[in-house]
Write a protein that binds this DNA or RNA. Structure first.
Lengths: 206, 206
DNA sequence: GTCTATATTAAGATAGAC
DNA sequence: GTCTATCTTAATATAGAC
């Protein structure tokens, strides 16, 4: 029963090829944006024709959605972020990783900025994504505030937006000027915030 | 001599029309990016044909450069920024203005992100721009550090990048989610930084 | 599955009338 | 100065052979 002869013939669309196309699409979208990227450039990277790429994904739009889907997974924390320490460690690690895999952040920034346009095919995705990521960050902050780990007069929402905004803005600057040390600036922010807002039994703890 | 009859006839290319086209181009580039914008959409806004627009600027690329030129001017401080207070007040005011003129910041973010691609026509402009804006910020910080207004163990470059990065990242988030209060988050940052690094004779001063 | 060939659409740019 | 008409190019997508 491994290859049914009845019913519609299921073309495997070999997962291997799909993955290779996704890799290439991710890189090209990251460099050129969705609007600047062409199926031909993606196809060229994979070593096939433009029609070959479309055979696997049907349309450029579907390919974009598949890329966003995978991006979302790669970007997900392995476990739920319950404490501030975990959240901070997670985003900081993302920043460090980003230095070695510039493609991931570049994809994020390039597509997110393009997506400001409500007519952009990834608009809804990014609107939703930022909502999710924000709450993922606000929740540990609120929990900490409730349990006394954080000064209780802090606007946790403003704080979460600040940290996320700084992270992304720094990445944008870094992409345009590699001299920008994203991690140094981000650590500066984390240190200052910790000093100002974290109520800690043992001092000097981030 | 107001209209010389000798020599090459100088078509005025009425400054009024040029300005109207620039306005429209700025708005459309801000919404769609350079790659997503079309001369036709710009022309439609002005109420003329695509060929009419090209008559005034020659090419889409030239139009883009004209837009960047004007953007740079509108964004320039009226006077040199000598102290930290002046610099901070200036960028904060920009942020506040940005809420009422979303087009300006949207232009900045959208084109800057597109420009990460070295092949983008505005790449050099933004690389240069970030260099300039950064030094405009680092200089007052260094001056303050030298004169004792700032703790002298601060990495002023990292600090400048942090402030600029936060500003832009917050704008990006705001563009995708209007609930993001850019000014609130930015003020949070400024307060915390001032508290941590500014050596002030009178306390509580930003 | 992958190719070549082609249909279709949309873009920037040019030519020439008015 | 502005228009219409057209050239040229490049893109997505489809059809059909292998």
């Amino acid at each position: 029963m491994s290859t049914p002869t009845t019913g519609q013939r299921q073309y495997a669309k070999t997962p291997g090829q799909r993955a290779r196309i996704l890799d290439a699409a991710m890189a090209v979208f990251a460099r050129r944006g969705e609007r600047g990227a062409s199926l031909r450039e993606i196809a060229e990277r994979v070593g096939m024709s433009q029609a070959g790429v479309l055979h696997h994904f049907g349309s450029k739009n579907a390919l974009l959605l598949a890329v966003l889907d995978r991006f979302d997974q790669e970007d997900q924390p392995g476990h739920p972020l319950l404490t501030i320490d975990e959240s901070v460690a997670f985003v900081r690690e993302e920043l460090v990783q980003g230095l070695q895999r510039p493609g991931l952040f570049q994809l994020q920034i390039t597509l997110a900025a393009e997506s400001i346009d409500p007519a952009h095919p990834a608009h809804d995705f990014f609107v939703d994504r930022y909502r999710r990521v924000t709450s993922q960050f606000v929740e540990p902050l609120d929990a900490a505030a409730a349990s006394g780990g954080l000064r209780d007069d802090v606007d946790t929402t403003a704080l979460a937006h600040l940290v996320m905004g700084a992270m992304e803005g720094l990445q944008l600057h870094h992409a345009l000027n590699p001299e920008v040390d994203t991690v140094a600036s981000f650590d500066l922010l984390l240190d200052v915030l910790a000093e100002a807002f974290i109520v800690s039994s043992t001092p000097d703890q981030v």
